[in-house]
Write a protein that binds this DNA or RNA. Structure first.
Lengths: 221, 221
DNA sequence: GTCTATATACGGATAGAC
DNA sequence: GTCTATCCGTATATAGAC
């Protein structure tokens, strides 16, 4: 599975996320027409990610956001109750589609080796597809409990695969928790340091393959 | 070399950094007595790291800082021109000692294998010793050019070691830039996710050894 | 050197017209 | 649905006493 194939199968779009957010927040979003709402939500999220990348969410003023989206201050407040509310929406509501894909992948493949590869790659490919969401969540929501527990969850999936692989004699015994942590660190590297890989001209497929190779050299019997 | 030994040889302290900062900023710091200045600078930095860890530097108000340090607003402004200036001081001035240690380590050991281990461990141990500095810089200064070029610099050291190891027939040929990136990602994991390793009761030595083992399984001929 | 009191600006949020 | 004008709290920064 490479990135191109992955996109065909699982490929949700930013529009899908915005629609999801719109439908999940009927009480805070005062806009009636779904089409305009979804459209503007996309603009808003994109602008937030853009500004927050440069100066952080806290340092972004509503006036910054107004300028970047081309919408007025008043208009913005029809889409969320306030700045805090906007943050919360991004932190919590936007993830349902992404989570769905991750869970789906982690159920495919019986063989531990294939399963490990699939799960690792799926995570990287998703973070490529929705990089701004991943980046923003990491930088602006690191200490939120929900995010920590998500990290815990995906780590446990990896540890589980490593353990069942060991039980089947495919993987070496070892400190699987620690190995799973290292995997997560390397996955995060992809969306945290985009500038580096752009500069080095390293594609997402090359990155993912390298990670899998590195890992198999260490784990396989 | 383990953490305990490392500390004995290279162990600078927070006080050393504060003294360095004091001496490097005679025009912005209005305090005459070095002892009180260094003392209070330590308090200030520690408080900044503490508050910024929870809510980020931008969200920290000067009143927060005043309360946490026990110093008044007026007193704080005798130590830096303003909040922006404080950020800049932390981002740029505090690193000279740390850089010195890193450079020193990277010159020891002729043998590539030993050198790789030494450099990797030294970086992790330094980040343990000065975790708040590393964490803060990552979170609050990621897109600063100076920080990017530091990352570039340390990455090139790693790539260089891998290449010379390949030339000597000790390491396998491979994509050394990418491998060096992965190493950096795993090193960063240590100071970015302290809560996780505390919870799993994994020591810095165990973490560092695991990283070295993982890498050698991949690199050694 | 450090404090308290205060000037000044800026940012979040709302009212009400269109 | 979106705009402009405006309110008001909060944050940075300074003045001047001790």
């Amino acid at each position: 599975m490479n990135y191109k194939e992955f996109k065909k199968i699982y490929g949700a779009s930013n529009q899908d996320i915005s629609r999801e957010v719109y439908r999940n927040n009927p009480d805070t979003i005062r806009i009636k027409k779904e089409k305009t709402a979804v459209n503007n939500l996309e603009k808003i999220f994109s602008a937030v990610f853009n500004i927050a990348y440069k100066k952080g969410f806290q340092a972004m003023s509503m006036r910054d956001l107004s300028q970047k989206t081309g919408m007025s201050l008043g208009a913005l407040y029809a889409y969320f109750k306030g700045k805090k509310d906007l943050l919360k929406i991004i932190q919590t509501q936007g993830w349902s589609i992404i989570k769905k894909d991750l869970d789906q992948v982690s159920k495919t493949h019986e063989n531990p080796r294939e399963r490990l590869t699939a799960v690792i790659k799926a995570h990287i490919f998703l973070s490529e597809l929705f990089r701004p969401w991943f980046y923003f969540t990491f930088m602006e929501a690191r200490n939120i409990e929900a995010v920590k527990s998500m990290e815990d969850h995906t780590q446990k999936i990896l540890t589980g695969i490593l353990e069942s692989g060991e039980a089947q004699g495919i993987f070496k015994p070892g400190d699987h928790d620690l190995t799973a942590s290292m995997i997560k660190a390397m996955q995060q590297e992809w969306y945290l340091k985009r500038w580096k890989y752009k500069k080095l001209k390293i594609s997402v497929d090359r990155f993912a393959d390298h990670l899998v190779n590195l890992l198999e050299a260490f784990c396989l019997v």
